[in-house]
């Protein structure tokens, strides 16, 4: 009875609440995500033309993009981009930088140890944990079968 009422209410609320503007959000995510990738590709191509090999160029690309993400977060611009672009600016590596720098900035007042250092990975921590764990598992599988 109680559960049934809750179910009914949840259904009712779902039908009441406005849906996110899907087309607009997708467009924003596509354009902004695409632009971020373009910048990254530009840095990589430029590095290659300066005589770095492909691997070095990729590393330079990653470093530059992380710097840009962190820099724009520090300027207070990245959250403005993210508000519209959603996953378009969260998924690229700039978003990863944003998720580390933003809590680090926010928790500075709690000190450098229990604030900045401890809180830095509250958002990025899960990505690191499962990213590293997955790569280890894949590495083991690769080792067995090769």
């Amino acid at each position: 009875m109680d559960n049934q009422m809750k179910q009914q209410y949840n259904d009712y609320v779902k039908q009441k609440q406005p849906q996110p503007a899907l087309v607009k959000n997708l467009l924003w995510a596509f354009v902004v995500g695409g632009l971020i990738c373009d910048v990254g590709q530009f840095v990589i191509n430029a590095s290659v033309s300066f005589g770095f090999n492909k691997e070095e160029a990729s590393t330079i690309g990653v470093v530059v993009m992380i710097f840009l993400g962190a820099f724009l977060t520090g300027l207070g611009v990245y959250d403005q981009i993210g508000k519209r672009a959603g996953a378009g600016s969260i998924v690229p590596i700039t978003g990863f930088a944003n998720s580390i720098v933003s809590p680090a900035m926010e928790f500075k007042r709690e000190g450098y140890v229990f604030g900045v250092a401890a809180k830095m990975f509250v958002l990025a921590g899960p990505v690191l944990v499962y990213g590293i764990a997955t790569s280890v598992i894949i590495g083991i599988i690769y080792g067995i079968f090769s």
Partner: peptide, 10 residues
């Protein structure tokens, strides 16, 4: 955190 670039639902 304030500077985190997330999206608010309607």
């Amino acid at each position: 955190p304030l500077e985190h670039g997330n999206q608010r639902p309607p």
